[in-house]
Computed example of a mutant assay.
Amino acid sequence: MDPVNHTWTQSFILAGFTITGTLRPLVFLGTLCIYLLTIAGNLFIIVLVRADSGLSTPMYFFISVLSFLELWYVSTTVPTLLHTLLHGCSPISSAACFIQLYVFHSLGMTECYLLGVMALDRYLAICHPLRYPALMSRQVQLWLALASWAAGFSAALVPASLTATLPFCLKVVVHYFCDLAPLMQLACMDTSWHARVHGAVIGVATGCNFVLILGLYGGILKAVLKLPSAASRTKAFSTCSSHMTVVVLFYGSAFTVYVGSPGSRAEGTDKLIALVYALLTPFLNPIIYSLRNKEVKEAVRRTTNRIRTILRET
């Protein structure tokens, strides 16, 4: 039987986290609550942006696109995490494993591109305010959003397809979902070439976008420091603070896992770090963009008053 067919006829076992005793149901319930709150929070952002005309700006359009992405991103891995927390080691078919691998990395790379687009939006709004409406028209917004999704799902084809064609001798994936490094450790052959290709593709998707974001924020900082008053500088920085927080959380944890040698870290470290960008960041995004944003708070008040008025009239 050739290696490719052998790969697709076997199943894997997700090891998950080693949690025993009474702690397991508590961790399961805590994770479930975070997952449900993540879904609710991101749906809240999407509905609010759609419902309130005061948020019909490019910045909030991209925030709503990010929230939509986070719904799928968190749902790609957390149900698997919940299953392993509840039942321990869980079998997963090879087809489901490689689909999860592809979708997870597609959404992750899409988020990288989208965070770069959001930085570009802030740069144009602050550095070119007079031309901003024309530069960031509705058509341009849609094109940038679609381009981010297309680029992310295209780039992830390379590492996912290369990993799927490996011959596997072992079954136990030392993770709570199917990721590149844990799967490559199960291969029957030397995967150093595959690792270099994966590093190049993911490095271009994440590294280039990160450099772009740094460059754009460098231009923003230069422009803001030239503003005449402290109040105007504070207002300009406040529109970027939420996005910068999300960038640090996402890129900081992702770089730790995907840059460098996995063998240099203690076993199980990648699983813990993965929780930051796969669960914690999608959970915190709605909080960061709502609690730290006056416009969102005002939109919530307007929407709440509108609903109360409708209820009184009925």
Rank of each mutant, 00 (worst) to 15 (best):
I307A: 08
N293Y: 06
L275Y: 02
R302I: 10
E295N: 12
I288Y: 00
R306Y: 14
T269P: 01
A278W: 05
T281L: 10
I288T: 02
R301N: 10
R306P: 12
T269Q: 10
Y289C: 03
I307G: 07
L291R: 10
D270W: 07
A274D: 03
I287A: 11
T269N: 08
L284P: 06
L275P: 07
T304M: 15
N285W: 09
K294T: 12
L291P: 02
S290D: 03
P286Q: 09
S290M: 05
L275T: 01
E298A: 08
V300Q: 07
G268I: 01
N293C: 14
P286F: 08
K297A: 05
G268A: 01
A278V: 04
P282M: 14
V296D: 04
A278H: 07
A274T: 06
S290C: 11
K271E: 15
V276A: 13
T304G: 11
V296W: 09
V300P: 02
G268D: 10
R306T: 13
N305V: 13
I307L: 11
L284Q: 02
K297D: 03
L284F: 01
E295H: 13
N293I: 06
S290R: 04
L284Y: 03
I288N: 01
R306C: 15
F283T: 02
R301P: 10
A299V: 00
T303V: 11
N293E: 15
T281E: 12
L275S: 03
R292D: 04
V296F: 09
I273V: 05
P282G: 11
E295I: 01
K271I: 14
E298Y: 11
I288W: 00
L284M: 05
R292I: 06
L280M: 00
K271Q: 14
T281K: 04
R306A: 15
I307S: 09
A274R: 01
A274K: 02
K294A: 06
A278F: 00
Y277Q: 03
L280F: 01
T269H: 12
R292S: 13
V276K: 04
F283H: 00
I273D: 13
N285D: 11
T281A: 12
R306N: 15
V300S: 03
L279F: 08
T303M: 11
A274I: 09
D270C: 09
R292F: 14
T269C: 13
E295G: 05
T303F: 14
I307Y: 13
I288P: 02
L291F: 04
L284I: 07
P286V: 10
L284A: 05
D270H: 06
R301I: 12
R292K: 09
T281S: 05
N305I: 15
I287S: 12
T303W: 14
L284D: 06
K294L: 08
I307E: 05
Y289V: 02
L272E: 10
K271P: 07
I307K: 07
R302V: 02
R308E: 14
L291M: 04
V300F: 05
R302E: 05
E295D: 14
